[in-house]
Amino acid sequence: MTASTDPATKEPFERVVQAHGDVVWKVCRGLLPQHDAEDAWSETFLAAMRAWDRFDGDRVRGWLVTIAHRKALDVLRAGARVETREDGPPDRAVEPPGRDLDLWAALARLPAAQRAAVVHHHLAGLPHADVAALTGSTPAAVRKAASDGVRRLRALMTEEPR
């Protein structure tokens, strides 16, 4: 590969936003309450745009999800939020009731490791090994956390009042 500073091979950043805005939103929203997720989303793309001329990998989605994961951690630390206390009034005011709210609300009730595994593996589509690298875990542990998380999610969602 040639020098990473060569801008001639880079696609316009707007194309990155168009291609990956949705998956980054699902990651942010899967890890954070509505309003914090909005902040994390824009901070993710702002940070990515800042580094875009230096990024020389070919796995843009994984790179963005990594940034989003860190931004989500920053937000959680800054707010010192208790994860099970999310999805308060702002969510219900903005999003219509139904399956949409149910998934995010149910995700918020998972233990942190299961939540991260489900979000990064099932919502972002990362392989277990990549999720493990991201969360400082092992592929086997991520596989189990994702599997347990999905089972728990389904139980939570069927118990959820409609």
Partner: peptide
Amino acid sequence: TEAAMPTVP
């Protein structure tokens, strides 16, 4: 996985 992931809206 053993249980299918719920549909992501």
